[in-house]
């Protein structure tokens, strides 16, 4: 029974995104360009900027509908279901505001980094209060050891750091066609397995709903992309994966399963630190995927390599948690 629910959840997530795309992509394109393409500026530039963004809206719609529909098939949605949707939709809304200001109002500045951070902190704090009200554990377990640390109310800072950190990490990774869609599908798939292993079926259903939604999106986002997910999608996916890790008490395992996102973020931190301290760059461009492009790899080769690395990290994460 449960296996069927999982299968139909992936299928529903996939189909909703795929069926929404032919309606949404032309709509997003119109939103991006208004009534006509701007007349000033060289033609080649217009071509470069021709792909509509904010495709994350389709992913969010698909995740929400699929999760509520399929969780209801199995049991009633629990507080974990609503926490997952709260963070995903909350971070998605922040990303949407940023995208909308940039795209529809044609302003490059969008939300300021401080405004985005404030929004992320507010959502994280709301999450913490609901989390504590339901007496969920504030312990953090260190994988491969017997060590656990009960952070008590300090856990709020941990939640803020994890949600803000991973949402921005996924956001940084979102720079090549299909890169985040593919790596997310793998990472959420891994968490679906681990949540299932803990009998947290509502978390597992949410995770596979995300897998279905991003795989459906990948059909249109793979190179050459017909649509980008924008901050709407990337911030939401980053917030969602951090929330799953917190609810399944696999906070540290997230560093392994989300290894691609972590490495991409580290490449930016190292690049900036190196440039500030030595005046030299470590990579030709950061985040890391751009470095490989500039050394001559094709976009497709970089993306497939990163997917493969993501898959290896996912297998390693499952192995450590389930078998070691």
């Amino acid at each position: 029974m449960m296996e069927q629910v999982i299968f139909f959840t992936i299928l529903a997530g996939f189909l909703i995104t795929v069926l929404l795309s032919p309606i949404f992509i032309p709509f997003l394109r119109r939103l991006k360009f208004g009534q006509s393409i701007r007349e000033e500026g060289p033609k080649s530039h217009q071509k470069k900027t021709g792909t509509p963004t904010m495709g994350g809206i389709m992913i969010l719609l698909s995740i929400t509908v699929t999760t509520l529909l399929m969780t209801g098939k199995f049991s009633e949605p629990t507080v974990k279901t609503y926490l997952l949707l709260l963070v995903t939709l909350g971070f998605g809304l922040l990303g949407f505001l940023d995208d909308f200001i940039k795209v529809a109002l044609k302003r490059n500045l969008g939300l300021t980094s401080k405004q985005k951070l404030l929004g992320q902190i507010i959502i994280s704090v709301i999450f913490y209060f609901v989390f504590r009200q339901n007496e969920f554990s504030t312990e953090v377990h260190i994988p491969l050891t017997d060590l656990s640390f009960d952070l008590g109310w300090w856990y709020v800072f941990f939640i803020i750091f994890w949600l803000v950190g991973f949402s921005n990490a996924v956001n940084l990774t979102d720079g090549l066609d299909g890169l985040v869609s593919g790596t997310s599908a793998i990472a959420f798939g891994a968490f679906a397995v681990l949540a299932w292993n803990q009998s947290q079926f509502e978390v597992s259903i949410f995770s596979v709903a995300v897998v279905g939604a991003v795989l459906g999106f990948l059909v249109f986002n793979a190179h050459p992309a017909k649509v980008f997910m924008g901050d709407t999608g990337s911030l939401a996916l980053g917030g969602a994966i951090a929330t799953i890790a917190i609810l399944t008490k696999l906070e540290i395992i997230l560093i392994i399963i989300g290894g691609v996102f972590v490495i991409e973020t580290l490449s930016v931190i190292l690049q900036v630190a190196s440039f500030k301290t030595t005046g030299k760059r470590i990579f030709r461009m950061s985040p890391l995927h751009h470095h490989y492009e500039l050394v001559g790899w094709s976009e497709w080769r970089v993306v497939v390599t990163f997917w493969t690395v993501g898959l290896l990290f996912a297998i390693l994460g499952i192995y450590i948690e389930v078998w070691v």
């Binding site: 701007r38 000033e40 500026g41 530039h45 470069k48 900027t49 792909t51 963004t53 940039k102 044609k106 302003r107 490059n108 921005n168 956001n171 940084l172 720079g175 090549l176 980008f228 930016v268 690049q271 900036v272 440039f275 760059r281 461009m285 950061s286 985040p287 751009h290």
Partner: peptide
């Protein structure tokens, strides 16, 4: 290591946040 951009033109989506 930096750019001056026309505010009417979209900055490429791949532009690093930093």
């Amino acid at each position: 290591v930096a750019a001056l951009w026309n505010e009417k033109d979209e900055v490429p989506t791949y532009t690093p946040n930093q």
